[in-house]
């Protein structure tokens, strides 16, 4: 290669690097901008009254308390079903399953579950829980629907967390006369716990923000009072955002942004907690 062509390659390459930098920036900046914008536009609406009062005047005034409570209920309901089941399934795949056709089928099913569109989960929940099992449009139906949607995330992350626990611990524990379950309970699970918790939070984070699966299974447009049993329908933040940004004419923008901000704080707060747990656990890990 002669000198001038090398120089021109160098110039072309530095142009290339610049382009990659720019494109990355163009990906990153809008995200931060988006979050910043919502915080800026939403925070004026936030007040004690906004967080603790029911909506009034056809939702054009007042607060969003029922939606917040509903979202909390749905998150707890989802966790109740999906966490034990998902972690147990993760244990099975990581610690018990042999490498055979049945296990490959399970993996395929998990991949498939994680790819099913959320609105299809909504249809399924409508067909099975609302109609067939007759739970009606209720917190119960919606939570069950969200649980099944969350399951693949929890299973995969639990499995991943347990998989990363060194095999030598299992061998040593077994050689000392521990049964498989004892090894799991005393060694594998405690070591995998931060990873599992992180995965659970990330799974629930997704459930918190979902609208489509609860549209026909448990979400209510407007309810003057809080739900009193799991068989009641409920308001929920994501659906409420959908309602006030598309279905209610003359909606004050401030309330819209305020509601969006509250949901975002929920979701990003969970994200932050998950990240913190993961980072701390990595730093503390002995292996």
């Amino acid at each position: 290669m002669d000198k001038s062509s090398r120089t021109s390659t160098l110039i072309a390459e530095s142009a290339g690097y610049t382009l990659v930098h720019l494109i990355t920036l163009a990906t990153i900046i809008p995200i931060l901008g988006l979050v910043g914008y919502i915080i800026a536009k939403g925070s004026p609406a936030i007040s004690w009254q906004f967080l603790t009062a029911a909506p009034t005047d056809g939702m054009r005034a007042g607060g969003i308390f029922p939606a917040i409570v509903g979202t909390v209920y749905l998150t707890i309901g989802t966790a109740i079903f999906s966490v034990p089941l998902g972690v147990a399934a993760g244990i099975y795949i990581s610690e018990y399953a042999a490498d055979n056709a049945a296990t490959r089928l399970i993996r395929l099913a998990i991949i498939n579950l994680s790819g099913i569109p959320s609105v299809v989960y909504g249809l399924f929940g409508l067909g099975l829980f609302v109609i067939f099992l007759n739970f009606g449009t209720s917190i119960l139906s919606a939570s069950l629907t969200l649980s099944i949607m969350t399951l693949p995330v929890i299973i995969s992350t639990s499995e991943e967390a347990m998989h990363s626990v060194p095999n030598s611990f299992r061998v040593v524990s077994t050689s000392l006369g521990a049964s498989r379950w004892q090894t799991i309970r005393k060694i594998v699970l405690p070591q995998a716990l931060p990873g599992i918790v992180t995965g659970v939070i990330l799974g629930l984070e997704r459930a918190v923000g979902e609208t489509a699966p609860i549209l026909f299974t448990g979400a209510a447009f407007y309810l003057p009072q809080l739900p009193s049993s799991p068989l009641d329908a409920t308001m929920a933040l994501p659906y409420h955002i959908f309602v006030i940004s598309t279905q209610v004419p003359g909606m004050p923008v401030e309330i819209q942004y305020g509601t969006v901000l509250v949901l975002l704080v929920f979701v990003l707060g969970m994200n932050l907690i998950a990240t913190l747990i993961r980072t701390r656990a990595r730093a503390k890990r002995v292996w």
Partner: peptide, 19 residues
């Protein structure tokens, strides 16, 4: 930051989309 984007609920993106 990328994980934040992954976490933003689609209804929030839809809302920003509208406005």
């Amino acid at each position: 930051v990328i994980e934040i984007l992954a976490g933003i609920p689609s209804v929030v993106l839809g809302f920003i989309g509208i406005l």
